[in-house]
Each structure stands twice: as structure tokens, then as C-alpha cells.
């Protein structure tokens, strides 16, 4: 049997309450689906497998699960995170303004090497738009990170956003491996026991369990 995967990335969704993070993770937030079992309990995280350049990548995607109500997200939540989606709601100026606070929170608690991406969600609600696309792009440029507008409800750009973030993380790892081929393992391979923690390298800390 071929090995199960080549890379394993832990990704986080961060942003204010109500920006639709849960919808990005939970694809259907519509009332039509509210009678399903999971809507009463909520999703903790998902495992998704994607393929990039012929390599299999496992994504473990976490939502903040209401922690953002306490305004600060603890270091524990950021531990091992390799990518963060900063999500705001294009119909809420406030959620956009708060992105700066979230970036500060990330700088304080997450690894300096974490790959970030800015997401303007709810782009299907054009009539209620408060944040222009340009404003989103400018903020992303200011921080040197990628930007995308998505609609979790309309399933616009959601998969693309995850692909883009995964691609950037992979590029970073591959680059590092090329510079330091004899260094610490940059890629978590299943045979190396993904549960084992190696504290010396950021990239080897990407497994939780």
C-alpha cells in the first residue's frame, strides 16, 4: 500500500464571532440543514485530503469554537498551527477593523513562521457590503499576506482558499528542506509516527494527538 500522505498541516480559522468561520468549516449553515444531527452538537475539526503537485496533503482544520468571545485566543489553540485563515465579514466593518487585533494576537501567541491569509467572507451578500474588495486587498498587502473573498454559503472560493494556503505552506517547507536537506524533518511522514513530538523544529510540531 502506498503511504497515506506526504504532508500534514494544521490550519486554524480565526476572526470575530458571526463572520461565518463556522460556515467555512461547516459548509452548510443554511436552515435547510439545521435538522441534521451535527447542527445540534457542532463540529470540532475536520480532516481533508488534497493533492498538490502530485503530493497528498492532509489538512486538519480547526474553528475557534466560540473562544473568540473571550477576545483572546490562548497559546494552546495556536500550538502547532502552520496556517491561519483570518476571516472577516464583508458586511461588517467592525469585523474588518478587528483583523488588526487578531493579527496582533497571532504575533503574540503563534509561531512567527505561521502562514497567514486574509478572507473576506459572505461575498454573496453584495447588497449589504460595507468593506470594499480594495480595502481587503490593501490590508493584506500591508501585512504581505494573500487575500481572497469567499462565500461559504454560496461555496465560492472556499476550496480555493484552503488550496492556496496549503500551497504556500508546502512551498515554505520545500524551500526549507532544499536549504537544509540534512536538517530536522520538515515533512511529517506517517512512518515517523506523527504523534511523536519533536520540540526542536516548528515544522515537526504540527500534530496534536
Amino acid at each position: 500500500m502506498a503511504k497515506a500522505y506526504d504532508y500534514l498541516f494544521k490550519l486554524l480559522l480565526i476572526g470575530d464571532s458571526g463572520v461565518g468561520k463556522t460556515c467555512v468549516l461547516l459548509r452548510f449553515c443554511d436552515s435547510a440543514f439545521s435538522t441534521t444531527f451535527i447542527s445540534t452538537i457542532g463540529i470540532d475539526f475536520k480532516i481533508r485530503t488534497i493533492e498538490l503537485d502530485g503530493r497528498k496533503i492532509k489538512l486538519q482544520i480547526w474553528d475557534t469554537a466560540g473562544q473568540e468571545r473571550f477576545k483572546t485566543i490562548t497559546t494552546a489553540y495556536y500550538r502547532g498551527a502552520m496556517g491561519i485563515m483570518l476571516v472577516y465579514d464583508i458586511t461588517s466593518e467592525k469585523s474588518f477593523d478587528n483583523i488588526k487585533n487578531w493579527i496582533r494576537n497571532i504575533q503574540e501567541h503563534a509561531s512567527a513562521e505561521v502562514e497567514r491569509m486574509l478572507i473576506g467572507n459572505k461575498c454573496d451578500m453584495l447588497d449589504k457590503r460595507q468593506v470594499t474588495r480594495e480595502k481587503g486587498e490593501n490590508l493584506a498587502n500591508e501585512y504581505g499576506i494573500k487575500f481572497m473573498e469567499t462565500s461559504a454559503k454560496g461555496n465560492i472560493n472556499v476550496d480555493e482558499a484552503f488550496f492556496s494556503l496549503a500551497k504556500d505552506i508546502k512551498a515554505k517547507i520545500d524551500k526549507r528542506a532544499a536549504i537544509d536537506p540534512l536538517g530536522k524533518p520538515a515533512v511529517i511522514k506517517p512512518k515517523l509516527d506523527p504523534h511523536k513530538k519533536v520540540s526542536t523544529s516548528f515544522w515537526s510540531r504540527c500534530s496534536l494527538f
Binding site: A4, Y5, L8, I38, I41, G42, I43, D44, F45, K46, I47, R48, T49, K58, Q60, A65, P190, P194, F209
Partner: peptide, 12 residues
């Protein structure tokens, strides 16, 4: 191993 799954969601 949870990473054996191709795609799956875990509830709270």
C-alpha cells in the same frame, strides 16, 4: 489513526 481518513468531520 485519524489521518487514515481521506475526509471526515469530528463533532465536539
Amino acid at each position: 489513526d485519524m489521518f487514515t481518513f481521506e475526509n471526515v468531520g469530528f463533532s465536539n
